Simulated assay, not measured.
Amino acid sequence: MKLVVLGLSITSSWGNGHATTYRGLLREFAARGHEVLFLERDVPWYADNRDLAELPGIDVQLYANLSELKHEYTPTIREADAVIVGSYVQEGIAIGNWVLRNAHGVTAFYDIDTPVTLAHLRRDGCDYLSAELIARYDLYLSFTGGPTLGELQRLWGSPAARPLYCAVDPQAYFPDKHAPLWDLGYLGTYSADRQPALDRLMLRPAERLGENTFIVAGAQYPNDIVWPENVERVEHVPPDRHRRFYNQQRFTLNLTRADMIAAGWSPSVRLFEAAACGTPIISDCWPGIDQFFTPGCEVLLATTGNDVVRILHGMSEPDARAIGEAARQRVLAAHTAAHRAAELESHLQEAGADSAPLPERDSDRRFNSTTRPPRLSLNAALSSSRQPA
């Protein structure tokens, strides 16, 4: 299958979780014998923070603007077996219309932010998706499952809404022998609707537990937040250091955005990453979490700061390790990038895409590179971004 993906970013994980998802999913999809082209808009905030060395099997190309995208890649869109447009892509509505006018294969929207997207559509509109586009895409691939899938089909007119949850790469996330540096840690970009939960489940317990150590890692936190003295702050942890970060925590905290709590069935990639490392997870509560992990056996749920204090001071180390290991086994059985790649292939096949792997020598079915001149490739972009100022 020849697949084109237009996504937010695969080259930089700075301030977004999309890159991690795309890297694992598309690498495993390519490993199943398919050809993948990822098109990413070249913007300064990602160009200055690229952290992808290479991505075997994936052709990554950068474009400067919508005009260049249309001029250079219209033939590519036409010859693809499937085209996916992701959430939060700049000018996503215009890109979606362009794809739908030109694609001859299956078209899909991949929403890594489904509850947020639908909340925007209900209120004041969405920058990257319209209600009209939902009904025109052949597939709506959603990070959120449960009742939201029925709503997408019944109320928004999607011909087929299917779950495609986030996942983890077990080659990158696994238990490591590191002495814990922190009793509780949290990894996540700042969001105003998640901050009250961070205050309640991390900062207030930290104030009460002066002898314990805490850490919050993530970008874009306002300067006026008052951090307790025993809470360490890190602006950014690149993906290649996530495993070490999780393994240096006794427990890790999982927090969910308000729209995703309301929708339910919205696991975060951080949840699966921490579980794959065998780090015991303390999570906020939301509908559907028991579909992914069994509360009390594979994940610990907390609604108040007292819950967190009781876990940190009342749970034995053997019990904590047992919960972490149970979560790890659950992830390995159902939530790896390889599982998601197989699900993506199945969804595209259901929608009518040619899902046969491309034979190594079947050059006439591969993207014809002569139809477009080479643009700014991943290697060129990484090289240029590393040049001294």
Rank of each mutant, 00 (worst) to 15 (best):
residue 214 F to G: 02
residue 191 S to E: 10
residue 209 L to G: 06
residue 230 N to H: 10
residue 191 S to P: 08
residue 183 D to I: 00
residue 184 L to R: 05
residue 167 A to F: 10
residue 219 A to L: 10
residue 207 E to A: 15
residue 160 A to C: 03
residue 169 D to W: 05
residue 203 L to W: 15
residue 181 L to K: 08
residue 162 R to S: 11
residue 214 F to V: 01
residue 194 R to W: 04
residue 227 W to L: 11
residue 190 Y to A: 03
residue 181 L to Q: 15
residue 218 G to P: 06
residue 183 D to Q: 09
residue 243 R to A: 13
residue 236 H to T: 01
residue 243 R to N: 15
residue 158 S to P: 08
residue 186 Y to R: 05
residue 173 Y to L: 14
residue 209 L to T: 04
residue 204 R to E: 06
residue 235 E to V: 14
residue 188 G to M: 10
residue 188 G to N: 07
residue 215 I to L: 07
residue 180 P to R: 07
residue 197 A to C: 05
residue 176 D to H: 04
residue 247 N to R: 02
residue 191 S to Q: 14
residue 213 T to C: 06
residue 174 F to P: 01
residue 198 L to C: 00
residue 168 V to L: 04
residue 206 A to S: 11
residue 206 A to D: 03
residue 177 K to N: 14
residue 211 E to T: 13
residue 165 Y to Q: 09
residue 225 I to F: 07
residue 243 R to W: 01
residue 239 P to A: 13
residue 186 Y to Q: 07
residue 159 P to D: 05
residue 242 H to R: 04
residue 178 H to W: 08
residue 220 Q to I: 05
residue 213 T to P: 01
residue 196 P to K: 09
residue 187 L to M: 06
residue 203 L to P: 01
residue 232 E to A: 11
residue 170 P to R: 00
residue 245 F to N: 03
residue 195 Q to A: 11
residue 228 P to L: 00
residue 178 H to I: 12
residue 186 Y to A: 10
residue 221 Y to K: 07
residue 171 Q to F: 10
residue 229 E to G: 06
residue 214 F to K: 00
residue 240 D to H: 09
residue 168 V to Y: 03
residue 190 Y to P: 09
residue 230 N to S: 02
residue 161 A to S: 11
residue 178 H to D: 08
residue 237 V to Q: 08
residue 177 K to W: 14
residue 195 Q to L: 14
residue 219 A to N: 06
residue 176 D to I: 15
residue 207 E to T: 14
residue 209 L to W: 04
residue 190 Y to T: 09
residue 229 E to Y: 08
residue 171 Q to T: 13
residue 248 Q to L: 12
residue 210 G to A: 06
residue 240 D to N: 10
residue 230 N to I: 01
residue 207 E to L: 11
residue 198 L to W: 02
residue 164 L to H: 03
residue 216 V to S: 12
residue 195 Q to K: 02
residue 235 E to N: 15
